[in-house]
Design a protein around this nucleic acid. Structure first.
Lengths: 142, 142
DNA sequence: CTCGCTGCAAACACTTTGCATATCT
DNA sequence: AGATATGCAAAGTGTTTGCAGCGAG
């Protein structure tokens, strides 16, 4: 993402309004942190990152903002490790979760067909998750 | 499972001891309810089922028992809908979750190979989950 | 008898809700 | 001005922990 910060912020403001959301400073801050490059974040994590810049930002607002973004398809919501995560990569893809550092990594694998056992279902989404130890944690002696 | 209850209970007791676990009435009750036929249960759900028979049974004990079973490979642990589930089907398989009735159904699909993007990982487990509306909820107007 | 297990209750972690105030348009 | 968003705090859920007493081996 080569855009300058100021330009990007303006983009976010316009985009929020295009989706019928008010462009508040809090939402712009969250958008600037989360959207535009692939990331996996939790609400608490976003709050921690933004607290220095926005001391009054509340966890509640972060939750609502992320959920609103997800509802508009700007983020994908997923759960892992008993937490909710929001993934800014919107194209279909899968995930690998490290059981040591708990980070989530995108896996761009070939899509596969829905198995015949699911005849009669109306499928809304599919997800594949691998769990294991990531290369850097293996090196560190995982 | 055509066995008689008493016989099955004895089997569980022997199995528990074989795994180094004491064969307490609570564990036998949980084993009898959960093991031996394919089921997806939550700790609270198991407690609800057993409360009539074991009024003093505690949620804590159910948690510990299910986790102990999972640690020995008698159950598979998975999370969905912000809850922990224990799956008594131990062979590799996938899951479909109904977004209306929230039930989890087993999907016996052909296994697939680990994508090349995961080179360098030590893979511990793989899971595929489809979300959608199950046939009976569709019929009911989902 | 001994060690492990159970049950109770409190502690935890994460998420949601209610409402008065502040802010965007 | 009007509608919506924010922040605070409290309530809700689900899970884990601590510990005295109990019970299986």
């Amino acid at each position: 993402m080569g855009r300058m910060m100021q330009g990007a912020m303006e983009d976010w403001a316009d985009m929020l309004r295009a989706y019928g959301m008010k462009a508040t400073p809090q939402r712009l801050a969250v958008a600037g942190r989360v959207l535009g490059r692939p990331r996996h974040v939790t609400p608490q994590g976003v709050l921690d990152e933004l607290r220095r810049e926005y001391p009054a930002l509340s966890l509640n607002t972060v939750y609502q903002t992320l959920q609103r973004f997800a509802a508009h398809g700007l983020l994908r919501e997923l759960e892992a490790g008993g937490r909710v995560w929001f993934d800014s990569r919107t194209e279909p893809h899968d995930h690998a979760i490290c059981s040591v550092c708990h980070r989530i990594e995108d896996v761009l694998a070939a899509p596969e067909s829905v198995p015949p056992a699911l005849q009669g279902w109306r499928i809304e989404s599919e997800s594949r998750v691998w769990r294991g130890v990531c290369p850097s944690c293996r090196r560190a002696g995982g």
